[in-house]
């Protein structure tokens, strides 16, 4: 079972349906107990950083995230779910993040429209990472965001939006995408299928 952490924000149905589409038994879970024993954990997120973080703590699912990361259960953060992994965000400076990844989320540059609400092309920095295997020669994905993770050595892919911006990041047994794979058509489904293969190795 893949646990999609449902802490009461936005449209999580799409993430669950997209994972089902690529063959996973994906379930929305609302308590840390339900997430226990999952083969993989997905942390989605839309809206503001502070509001998402507060809702995540209120639900107790922050503990599910920590437990999964500690146990080495494959973990995937999506959009604001990626941003929550960091220590904090320029969006809500007083709110602290999960602090699983180092650094603070920053605002997209003033030279570009905010939000970035569009499809953009992925530039793979680490094409050998299993999450981005076989995405085809010209992978475009759908972004909706005004804030972005800081540059780091763990960058798997970037997109060009007022300079290279973090699009996919990886740490041991942990991945996160700034774009929405569940809204990125065939390329997004291929990426989710890769995550399912990571969670259920043959």
């Amino acid at each position: 079972m893949l646990a999609v952490l449902d802490y009461g924000i936005g449209n999580l149905r799409s993430a669950q349906k997209a994972l089902e589409r690529v063959g996973a038994d994906a379930r929305l879970v609302t308590t840390a107990a339900e997430a226990r024993g999952a083969a993989g954990v997905v942390l989605p997120g839309v809206g503001a950083f502070g509001a998402c973080m507060a809702a995540l703590r209120r639900s107790g699912l922050d503990q599910a995230a920590y437990a999964a990361v500690e146990a080495g259960t494959p973990f995937l953060g999506i959009c604001v779910g990626m941003q929550l992994l960091y220590e904090g965000s320029e969006e809500d400076p007083e709110a602290s993040g999960l602090g699983i990844l180092a650094g603070r989320v920053q605002r997209l540059p003033d030279t570009v429209k905010r939000p970035q609400m569009q499809w953009n092309r992925l530039e793979l920095r680490r094409p050998d990472d299993p999450l981005v295997a076989d995405l085809g020669p010209d992978p475009w994905v759908y972004f909706v965001h005004s804030y972005v993770a800081p540059p780091s050595p763990g960058l798997v892919a970037v997109c060009d939006y007022g300079g290279p911006q973090a699009a996919v990041v990886a740490a041991p047994k942990l991945w996160a995408t700034q774009f929405h794979p569940e809204k990125s058509g065939p390329v997004g489904l291929a990426l989710l299928a890769n995550f399912v293969r990571i969670a259920y190795p043959a």
Binding site: R21, V22, G23, W119, R121, L135, G136, P137, D138, P139, W140, P186, V187, L189, A190, A193
Partner: peptide, 14 residues
């Protein structure tokens, strides 16, 4: 104008 290329990759799954 840059656009996402249509049908750049075959669908996955059923």
């Amino acid at each position: 104008f840059p656009v996402r290329p249509p049908a750049a990759y075959p669908p996955v799954g059923p």
